[in-house]
Design a protein around this nucleic acid. Sequence first.
DNA 1: GGAAATCTACTCGGATACCGCGTGTCCGAGTTATGGTGG
DNA 2: CCACCATAACTCGGACACGCGGTATCCGAGTAGATTTCC
Lengths: 169, 169
Amino acid sequence: MSHISVGVEYGLHCLLHLSGPPTGVTVASVRDLADLQGVSIDYVAKLFTKLRKAGLTVASEGKNGGFRLAKPASEISVLDVVHAIDGVKPLFECREVRVRCAVFDGNAPRWAAQGVCSIHEVMLEAEQRMHEALARQTLADLSRRVDAKAPRSYGPSVVRWMENRSGSA
Amino acid sequence: MSHISVGVEYGLHCLLHLSGPPTGVTVASVRDLADLQGVSIDYVAKLFTKLRKAGLTVASEGKNGGFRLAKPASEISVLDVVHAIDGVKPLFECREVRVRCAVFDGNAPRWAAQGVCSIHEVMLEAEQRMHEALARQTLADLSRRVDAKAPRSYGPSVVRWMENRSGSA
DNA sequence: GGAAATCTACTCGGATACCGCGTGTCCGAGTTATGGTGG
DNA sequence: CCACCATAACTCGGACACGCGGTATCCGAGTAGATTTCC
């Protein structure tokens, strides 16, 4: 179990497919998105509920409904997706052991509880660096990287796959 | 449950007390270290077993035994402690969903499985930034910060507390 | 032919089951200094 | 006075219990377009 969950991974892959041409479409149903990656439909649906609440996607209900990005892909960072799905769980949870030092015998002096624990400071600094790196990358950046790897035929084949599904259903 | 466990927090606090004057001593038993912070003895013992295996501390067995740092505090980074106790668990565990894309229909082409997943790359970059921040801080740095906060009387009182314990026992 | 009813496909959200892992505890074994005992 | 033995204190390492949260599934409700039915 890692700090950044698989939900984030699924979510990012789905959002990449929603980032428009050349590699993806602009609107798709949860069913198609889930089946496209061999993941549980219900699970992906829960992810998109979170993404919607975070204001990253908008949903259109009813038949032929689906999700699309609420903003241009260049304005959605990886950090946004992480926070939307995993919440803001901290890298490190300080338990304030400094105030429980036996020397204080129960009642810690003011200076011990004041400010942020020194160890906590270091962890917060590291967390900050991590967040900066994640905030720097947007869906558009990721999309470009994928496009650079994949052959030119990949994008259209994905689009065709989705159209065939809705056609056969 | 955060990515960096409470074990690391306990471990760091213990190691700080082992970082020598002015705030700490140079050798101490697990019992004293644990009681000093109101933490389970057995649990701290397990932590120190890991720290020993990682080569950060050395133990002297038998009566009046205990642990001391294997290296100067200035050569032990926070990252070393994190890795020693939590292991090297990754920030993000890529499940390679890219190769499971339904378009490939079971057998993914070479280009899809080649190299590192684009999403994974971003996560690795963030993890790297985090590690850099943790590697930059040593026990000596932390010790200095604590000393700057605590009054001059704190260090000696900790030492006295330990001596009283071994004296009364 | 147009309006109403039905159907279908989709989103929404809660409830729940499963399972791995972090946290914490317990115990037996090995090791070394200390204190006591007997020659 | 010295050698020997028992005891205490400590580390070492495995085993295990507990609970939380991530992962995954199921189901009922609400909504809107498509289709059919009926006047």
